[in-house]
Design a protein around this nucleic acid. Structure first.
Lengths: 194, 194
DNA sequence: AGTTTTCATTGATCTATGGTAAGAAGCGTT
DNA sequence: AACGCTTCTTACCATAGATCAATGAAAACT
């Protein structure tokens, strides 16, 4: 049983949702718990939901031919993560999502999003807002990978995800940055000398 | 004067637009020519349009603190390019768009997109399709940068943009791949030995 | 508590890619 | 044709980051 819902706050703040509408939506809101290590999406399957992280931490990553994992995105509390292209096109995803910590998510399916759009006119354009934000975020990440060295990327990471550093093993951060754990360790050592 | 319009074909194929609707839209369609080297968008200014490339070739890139250019996207014929986040949020862009060749574009502004949505119900969701496609493309690019070496990225590039290699200087492709022109030259030499 | 597994650090070496510089080939301009 | 300017290639060396291996610390499991 959830007492304070981050998700409710999120809807009220981001989309100016009214209490009366929340009543209608609540029935469609499905909370689900995932244990550390459990998968919410595996490559090859078709993604059905967007996941709002109520509590905990997820990662969104791909695996390349040589078996190495590449984390494209972390999702701590109040983030939404999904392979929405897979939802949208009905195509198998090429990404994995799993729980880095025990995590409670709100499962958002098409029915929920549709009802939200009906109930709240603002949401139709706010849906676009989510996509635009995502694109902006991806552009920044591309710029960072194309133009910055490991140390600069690491500093960017700390700004974007202030608390994730304390919550995940370093090799995951290395995977996000596109370097090896050993290199990250050296970067951190060098930075700590200042 | 344009005889055959790629843009018209694009609308008819992608969005199943009807001839009668095309009549209404045509008045809002603004063609514009840009000479090689001319800017369509500069960092710091607010992006107002999406650009459909009728003929020619554009590049979309950022410049990092040390002055180096990083090409995020090429746009040859029938591609759409824009900093839609800047349009959407009304914020100054951090990207440049300029013409790699003399280029004719269709200037798509908010008024045009709005009319298109009114005239064609399909377009509302097809607008999302464009964004989803863009996100998918960016995900692939991120995966490539995180998980592949220069040679693999170059081969990917050739698949994605089969003719761009012949149309732009190699240093631009190097900039797209995140390597130096010298390195690209070495990669190509190695590949040509097979 | 003891055992096993995962993680972080460090040193030694290796490799892919960067930087510099020089020359050759192409192209536009006069 | 001769001159610049840009592009591409190649050689040589430098460097960031990768790889391998060893160690210790921390966490998870029994």
């Amino acid at each position: 049983m959830i007492k304070e819902s981050n998700f409710k706050n999120y809807l009220f703040q981001q989309f100016e949702l009214q209490e009366e509408h929340w009543q209608k939506l609540q029935a469609l809101v499905k909370y689900q718990r995932f244990q550390k290590g459990e998968f919410l999406l595996t490559a090859g399957s078709i993604c059905q939901h967007s996941f709002f992280v109520e509590k905990g931490l997820l990662r969104f990553y791909s695996i390349s031919v040589n078996g190495k994992e590449h984390i494209l995105q972390f999702a701590p509390e109040n983030w939404v993560v999904s392979d929405r292209s897979s939802v949208f096109f009905g195509e198998p995803s090429s990404f994995h999502i799993d729980a880095v910590e025990d995590t409670t998510v709100v499962m958002l399916d098409e029915r929920f999003l549709k009802t939200l759009a009906e109930v709240n006119v603002k949401f139709a354009s706010n849906n676009e807002l989510l996509l635009q934000n995502h694109i902006r975020h991806l552009h920044q990440r591309l710029h960072s990978l194309l133009g910055e060295n490991a140390e600069e990327r690491y500093l960017n990471f700390l700004k974007l995800y202030p608390d994730v550093m304390q919550r995940v093993p370093q090799w995951m951060i290395a995977s996000y940055l596109g370097i090896t754990p050993e290199s990250l360790s050296r970067v951190r050592k060098k930075l700590s000398k200042n």
